[in-house]
């Protein structure tokens, strides 16, 4: 089966859209009718057939358009991709992990031939064919991390382990929700999480760090995080706030269903073999309230979660100003019926 890729934009006229299939497989992040910040970690990959959890690196109908959007962001601000010199080996590790996984999981889209360190990579959706020498950076047009993450959906952080902490020493960040690479390169785990309210006090980060440090070479994990954004915009970085911040005020009771998007991050963790670094891919999925409410279970649950959420979290997640409008809109989908457990839609 070949995949159809959408012709769509994540800025300007915002023609981004989800097919029925994409909506049904959306990684809805709430497994119950209330939300609590937690370290909800599961093994990855693994999940129902067709879900975004099934394979290591999910490729979907937005792939080609997302890669174009990344190109635009990088052309405007090359510092969205940075790698300190000692992270090059981790970049090769990541390139290998992604190429091997994609060629295995999507043979009709990607091919990788390896003869020792002579590699031949074919990426059909993006029309790329490249012969290069593994571990030899002179044979690629840019560093290995940049090369492969220009061809992979999601943001990427590469973390270096030292002194019992993790340091974000490389990354490709063009679709971040609430953090900025320029600000975070060289920062450790606690520094770059500092703004999350409550979590520090709950000791969540100490536990999360302990967990991350113990991730072994053969194990990989995921967790979901979420926020809300107005318009299907990938690049909601602090640097470009002046471009997207004011859009929050363009929401009206008439357009909120189409303009207000739930933004879900599928965060995964991998221990890389040669560098012993941790790879932290953060994949972003977007769906508007109208599309989500088309699944009755999600409509009911989303209403309850956003209505009852702790006000500091609504503030932190950036939707407090529009919360009333959002909850009013969603209330029409909530008949008070109970919802089934788990995140997947009914039927």
């Amino acid at each position: 089966m070949t995949m159809q890729f959408n012709d769509e934009t994540f800025r300007g006229d915002y023609t981004y859209h989800n097919s029925q299939k994409a909506i049904r497989r959306f990684p809805f992040p709430f497994d119950q009718d209330a939300y609590m910040y937690s370290v909800n970690i599961e093994q990855h990959p693994g999940g129902p057939e067709g879900s975004p959890f099934e394979v290591m690196f999910d490729v979907d109908e937005h792939y080609v358009a997302e890669m174009k959007d990344r190109e635009i962001t990088l052309a405007e601000d090359p510092l969205r991709c940075q790698s300190l010199p000692h992270m090059e080996l981790a970049g090769w590790d990541l390139l290998e992990l992604i190429m091997v996984s994609k060629a295995r999981d999507y043979p009709e889209l990607f091919t990788l031939h390896r003869d020792g360190n002579d590699w031949h990579w074919i990426n059909k959706p993006l029309g790329i064919e490249k012969k290069f020498t593994f571990l030899d950076p002179t044979t690629l047009p840019c560093g290995p991390m940049e090369y492969i993450t220009r061809q992979t959906q999601g943001d990427f952080a590469l973390l270096h382990e030292r002194d019992g902490n993790l340091w974000m020493d490389a990354g490709m960040v063009t679709s971040q929700a609430d953090w900025s690479l320029d600000f975070d390169v060289g920062m450790n785990f606690f520094e770059w999480h500092a703004p999350v309210p409550k979590a520090r006090k709950m000791g969540v980060f100490d536990k999360a760090l302990k967990f991350l440090l113990s991730v072994g070479q053969d194990q990989s994990y995921r967790r979901l995080n979420w926020t809300l954004t107005v318009n299907p915009r990938l690049d909601t970085s602090p640097e470009t706030y002046h471009k997207w911040g004011p859009e929050k005020r363009s929401v009206t009771p008439e357009n909120v269903g189409r303009k207000q998007f739930l933004r879900v991050e599928l965060q995964t963790f991998f221990r890389l073999p040669r560098s012993n670094a941790l790879a932290f891919p953060i994949r972003c999925y977007l769906a508007n309230l109208e599309d989500l409410a088309g699944q009755p279970k999600w409509g009911r649950r989303l209403h309850r979660v956003l209505r009852d959420i702790d006000p500091t979290l609504a503030e932190y997640k950036g939707f407090a100003v529009n919360q009333e409008m959002i909850v009013d809109y969603l209330s029409q989908f909530d008949d008070g019926a109970p919802t089934s457990p788990g995140i997947f839609p009914d039927g």
Partner: peptide, 12 residues
């Protein structure tokens, strides 16, 4: 077991 590393080189 698969390899694990508690004594890695600091490549900086």
């Amino acid at each position: 077991s698969t390899p694990a590393n508690l004594f890695q080189l600091d490549l900086r």
